Amino acid sequence: MARVESITELEHIAARHWRGTEEDRLGGWLLRAAGGFTGRANSVLPLGDPGVPLDDALAAVTRWYRARALPPMIVIPLPLEGDSPCHQLDNHLSERTWLTRPGPAFVMVADLAAVPPAGDSPAGGEFRVDAEPDDHWLATYHYRGQDRQPPVLRTVLMSAPAQAFASIRGDAGEVLAIGRLSIADGWAGITAVEVTQARRRAGLGMALTRAICAEAAARGARQVFLQVETDNIPARTLYERCGFRYSHRYHYRVAP
């Protein structure tokens, strides 16, 4: 079974599921940029030693992002309990007035064998999976509620070693719910989950999640992860009911 022993290993794996269009290394830190589209694709993943004194590393990070007209941003993965090196980095950034971006999140994981079966799709809906997102899928996706679709959108969505685009469609072919499945290093990732406004609270989110997990298992993955904002209680409850458990949490620090 594809298991990990630490937050660091899981974050390294997750970084292959949603990548920047440009990536660079500073020692053990991964610098990512994608035109500002999503925090994960436009932030530093600070795992390990940057190879230079910390303030020099922050100066190099600042120069790298400013050269791309992006705000310097660092993701801070933290354990659910106890101390960690990232706590020390977080405190260091706080002392230097790096701001905390709104929207802290949990990373949740599950063994795919423990996720309840998908069952039948809700009435009036049919589950399907496509190799690439069609225009209807893309029109349903609104990152953080945004209507604007940046030029790098499709490139980021297609950035994993393997991915598929799930949806539940109505009788007339209209999109009712969407989600992205990515696979790398034996792990599945679920991202870009959205249910259309008119069909929320009708069981589509649960049906979609379980169906994506079944698809991931059929493709050889053994475990699955996702991210969910800490204050999104309905989504957290849904994922808990699907067998997900909490791995760790994270937030972003943005340079002043």
Rank of each mutant, 00 (worst) to 15 (best):
L238P: 05
P79E: 12
F37V: 07
A139G: 02
I190L: 13
A216L: 01
T38V: 12
G186D: 10
P46K: 03
R219I: 01
M1K: 04
V175L: 04
A188W: 04
L93Q: 02
I178H: 09
F165N: 03
D171W: 00
R180K: 15
A57G: 11
L157M: 15
D130E: 13
A33Y: 06
H12R: 15
D231H: 11
P161V: 10
D111T: 11
N42L: 03
F165P: 02
S167G: 14
A139F: 06
G243I: 12
W98M: 03
T230F: 06
L10Y: 12
A160P: 05
R219S: 11
R249G: 04
M206L: 13
P72D: 05
G189V: 05
D231R: 12
F165A: 02
A15I: 03
I168H: 07
P234K: 09
L157P: 00
V193P: 02
D130L: 14
V228Q: 06
G243S: 02
D147K: 12
G103A: 12
P256K: 04
G186Y: 11
W18Q: 11
V254A: 00
H17Q: 15
G220S: 04
A118W: 12
A67M: 08
A67L: 13
L157F: 14
P117D: 14
V224P: 01
R253P: 06
V193G: 15
R253V: 00
E240F: 04
T62V: 03
H87W: 10
S247G: 04
M108Q: 15
L89D: 08
T8S: 14
V254Q: 11
M73H: 02
R19Y: 11
H248K: 04
R249V: 05
G179I: 08
R245Q: 14
L157W: 15
G179N: 07
T230L: 09
W137V: 00
A69V: 10
R148L: 07
A2M: 10
F37K: 11
A118M: 09
E23H: 08
G20A: 06
G119Y: 05
R68E: 14
F127W: 09
E95Q: 15
G145T: 03
A211K: 00
